[in-house]
Simulated scan of single mutants.
Amino acid sequence: MSRWWRPALLVLLVTAGSAVLLVTGWPTVESVRGATAGAGWLAPVLFTLLFTAFTLVPAPATLMGIAAGVLFGLPMGLATTMAAVAAGALIGFGLSRSLGREVIAGLGSARLRRLDERLRRGGLWTVAGGRLLPVIPYPVLSYACGLTSIRLRDYLAGSVLGVLPSAVAFVTIGAYGGDPSSVPFLLAVAGLVVLAAGALIAKRRRPRDTAPAAPAPPTPVG
């Protein structure tokens, strides 16, 4: 039982973070603005730290992307968003890799080994696809990847590349929300529609990993 204390700690940390979010309530753009307004030049740093925390629990990360655009405009808003995305991806991966990978690797499940090998071979592009079409919630994919043998550089690059299109769209919506008829705003909304449609199609067509069929019984001789 001693080997299970690490994954149990990981579950406890995620559960505790989710509980704090439920107790304090979902943030609004105005509450985020209020939390960073008095920070002066440190506001982007404070916002990035807050955003990073939201990437580790089932939190409204899309709202934070929009808030980044509202508060800082497109260039700085996108920079803070991507910094938070990269930091959150690293922290989630690191926690899962250090606290749960050893136990998962020791289970000896053939199905888990196949899934692990598939993700390791796909590497960067598998993670990028998972981030681009968010069929799996952001923190769930971060923790799941940490349990596999995927290389850190492939995971991080895939996370950044996969999130970038939706991050650009949400930050643009926040930055140009005051003029919803503007070309950047309309392009951002159109991009999100395309991503949502792609995610829906991917979810419906997602192949299921099935166990290998049992060998057929030997044919009687004689």
Rank of each mutant, 00 (worst) to 15 (best):
M82N: 13
L132V: 01
L22I: 12
A105Y: 04
A202N: 14
G129P: 00
Y143S: 05
L186E: 15
S2D: 02
K203P: 08
A216S: 09
T28A: 08
V23E: 04
E30R: 15
P139W: 07
G123K: 01
S142K: 07
V23G: 02
S96E: 05
V57K: 05
A43V: 05
E102F: 00
G38Y: 03
A157H: 13
G40D: 04
D154M: 11
S31P: 02
P58C: 07
G73W: 09
A202V: 15
A86Q: 09
G92V: 08
T80Q: 11
S109Q: 02
A79C: 06
I136Q: 10
R113V: 00
F93C: 10
P180M: 06
I150C: 07
A199F: 09
R153T: 15
R6S: 02
G40T: 03
G108K: 03
V20D: 06
A214R: 06
L161A: 13
F51S: 02
W4P: 05
P75T: 04
L132H: 01
T219I: 12
F170Y: 13
G146D: 05
L46F: 13
V140Y: 13
C145Q: 12
V127W: 01
Y143C: 06
G34A: 13
G162H: 07
D154K: 12
L63A: 03
R121N: 00
A144H: 14
G178R: 14
A83Y: 13
D209H: 14
L147Y: 06
P215W: 00
G100Y: 01
L78F: 11
G65P: 02
T210N: 15
A213Q: 04
Y155A: 14
V103K: 03
V127R: 00
V171D: 08
V171R: 10
G106Q: 00
V163K: 09
A110E: 04
A213H: 02
T36P: 11
I201G: 14
R153P: 04
A199S: 15
L78R: 03
G198N: 12
V193G: 10
T15E: 06
F72V: 01
V189G: 13
Y176V: 02
L141F: 15
W41N: 04
V221E: 09
P207H: 10
R101G: 07
P180D: 06
L133K: 00
L95P: 12
A53C: 09
L9F: 07
T80M: 13
P27I: 04
A87P: 06
G77Y: 08
P75K: 07
V193N: 07
A68E: 05
S181G: 03
A157S: 14
A105N: 09
V221A: 08
V70F: 07
T81Y: 13
